[in-house]
Amino acid sequence: MNPALAGLTALFTSSPQLPQLPIGVAYSGGADSTALLLAAAHRWPGQVQALHIHHGLQAAADDFVRVCETVCASAKVPLQVVHVDAAHAPGESPEDAARRARYAALAAAAKQQGLGGVLLGQHADDQVETLLLALSRGAGLPGLSAMAAQFERAGVLFYRPLLQTTAVSLREWLLRQQQPFVDDPTNTDERYTRNRIRARLLPALAEAFPQFRATFARSAQHAAQAQLVLLDVALQDLAAIGTPPAIQALQALSSPRQANVLRHWLLQQQATPSAAQLDQLLRQIAACTTRGHRIHLKVASGHVTRVGAVLHYSAAAKKAG
């Protein structure tokens, strides 16, 4: 086995939380998930299930299923094909809609099958692309942390064991083994930002900074660690200022700590403030020195208002379907 893929075993051996078996693999039929599926089946014979999400967004989707069936039959891995409706709402990103539908379907299938978690095939190149996308959007530490090696969604644990493995090593191993896999035609469509990064930026980075995958990953890890510290501070500050936040107690904090705790409080209300909205809220809190000072600011889809001595967040009412 390719040393990069053999690292899958080492990763889970050294992980503080080993995946509970049986385990699922999110299997698209592409090179990355095919290599992951075969590595997992080699590591845990008879304990792996392939989960293929059929989005129905491409004419070739049924062909993808046939390739998955061939590989799974050869590897003696059971395959479950899950059909999802990944249509996006007006103004919504098609990629975001498909991603949400995919994770929801994977979590539901894992629960239905009694799986201990789901392995995802994102690799080192995907990690770099995610970090560059975050930088292009002016993201804070959560975005610069890129993709976590392990996370939970809808009560299901997801793992990304290939984040230290390059895309080319996965593809080369499959070609040497003469393993079939799907080449998704949308991966070369440069209308998508991620594909432009893959086609144009990664080759330039490889030429200028040959070790960029490792160094970018290290930066993402530093950002993730710093974000955990900020989360700890936010929890301590929120306990001190109360829920809902007391304005006078907020004013006793430095502006960066106010921003940190307010961002955390708003996220608890299912609201993600923009940088401009958070800056305006900080200015309003600083100016709130009289009993009659009014605060009424739009944040995300709702509003932050002053109610007596505290802040209150009200989400926008959902329109009836």
Rank of each mutant, 00 (worst) to 15 (best):
F12L: 02
T13K: 04
S14N: 04
S15E: 00
L18A: 08
Q20M: 08
G24H: 14
G24S: 13
L36F: 01
L38G: 01
R43Q: 04
R43P: 01
V48Q: 12
A50N: 03
I53N: 01
G56A: 07
A60D: 14
A60E: 15
A60Q: 11
C72P: 05
V77E: 06
V84A: 03
H88W: 08
P90H: 14
A107D: 06
A109V: 15
L133N: 00
A134R: 14
A139D: 03
G140H: 13
G140F: 09
L144W: 06
S145Q: 09
A146K: 00
R153G: 02
R153E: 05
V156K: 07
V156W: 15
L163F: 04
Q164D: 02
Q164A: 10
V168G: 02
L175V: 08
Q179C: 09
P185Q: 02
N195K: 13
R196Q: 08
L205F: 08
A208E: 08
F209P: 03
F209H: 09
Q211G: 06
A214N: 14
T215C: 08
H222V: 04
A223L: 10
L228R: 11
L228A: 06
V233R: 06
A249L: 10
N260V: 07
L262V: 07
L262K: 04
L262Q: 06
W265R: 04
Q268V: 09
A271K: 14
T272S: 08
Q284I: 03
A286F: 15
A287I: 07
R291E: 14
R291I: 11
H293D: 02
R294A: 11
H296M: 09
G302S: 10
H303A: 05
R306P: 12
L311Q: 03
A316Y: 02
K319Y: 10
G321A: 14
